[in-house]
Write a protein that binds this DNA or RNA. Structure first.
Ligand code: SF4
Ligand code: SF4
Lengths: 157, 157
DNA sequence: TGTTTATGAGAGTCTTTTATCCAAAATAGG
DNA sequence: CCTATTTTGGATAAAAGACTCTCATAAACA
């Protein structure tokens, strides 16, 4: 997989948060229920996002987790880097350790190009954009559910 | 990793073979030594390539393995598909199971574009091209060695 | 016949990823 | 102060991936 499972879960959670009222703390349990991700597992992932300065958390009743910046200002790449690191954007197509630009292997040019495509995809999309598009076109977010699961919460349906 | 390790090993072996006199059977042991891959592991991988019709094998003394087609006619994608399957070229950026084009998720368009970049990279490069480029520019093939390890064999150095 | 070399099944090890559990700390509210 | 809630962080366990090795079989050769 291009992105690790942790990373995908982190992205989904981030989309979920971007769709909430900004500044409100959302309990992880609520997210894990809605997104159908193991609570404990999601917890670990969100801890990483908190450590990386993407989320902030608050303990106790009415506590939870929220985005530090507004969804408009968070490109997907931030979440990906926080969880999967930069390997995806720097790794070698042929899996050779210790690659240096000085002695590139034959695939390097084309691979770098394809990799940049991935990078720009992640840099140019923000959480809010994705939520917006998901809402407008009623796209899917989990295998079973579409973005409606996000709105249920917000709109109290 | 974009490509599994098995796949990378398979590619390296294929490059090795493409650099040999066409039609000559090369023992797997020779390749595993040169390429610094576990003999048993490489054997498994090459069995797949044989099963997929990329290699043919010959038992007994003077036996080994060779490319069925000439290296010029083998795009990298053939090897990748034989070992890693088509998942790489069809998988979903967000890891959603059972994706249908009918209800794409928001990333779909950009992701499909990036994925096509990878696909064309693998389709447009042939084994021979890579060997050629590696030879001309003395590029690296393993972490330690460059393409010279291929020539040592051929030229009997 | 005996040696070489691939085939195919399979067991075993090691590492990374994915997932679960639990005790501790912080907070809110009664 | 007490209790329920919620994140934190450490530890553990299960699953998947990446190897390593063995063995029995088959084909080719000499
Ligand atoms: S030069 Fe080759 S080994 Fe290095 S990053 Fe590029 S593809 Fe990978
Ligand atoms: S539509 Fe979304 S879920 Fe489907 S393949 Fe594209 S990115 Fe993946």
């Amino acid at each position: 997989m291009l992105l690790s499972k942790s990373c995908v879960y982190g992205l989904r959670a981030a989309l979920f948060l971007a769709n909430q009222e900004h500044g409100k703390f959302i309990p992880i349990r609520q997210m894990s229920d809605k997104l159908e991700i193991s609570f404990h597992f999601l917890t670990k992932i969100l801890q990483q996002l908190t450590a990386e300065g993407i989320l902030e958390s608050f303990k106790g009743p009415n506590g939870g987790v929220r985005l530090i910046k507004r969804g408009e200002q968070i490109p997907l790449i931030d979440v990906v880097l926080a969880i999967d690191g930069s390997e995806l954007l720097t790794e070698c197509a042929l899996g050779l350790p210790g690659c240096g630009v000085k002695e590139p292997c034959p695939l390097h040019d084309k691979w770098a190009e394809a990799r940049d495509g991935i990078r720009s995809m992640l840099e140019e999309s923000t959480l809010t954009e994705l939520v917006q598009k998901g809402r407008d076109e009623n796209l899917r977010l989990t295998s079973e559910n579409g973005f409606d699961i996000l709105f249920e919460v917000k709109e109290g349906v």
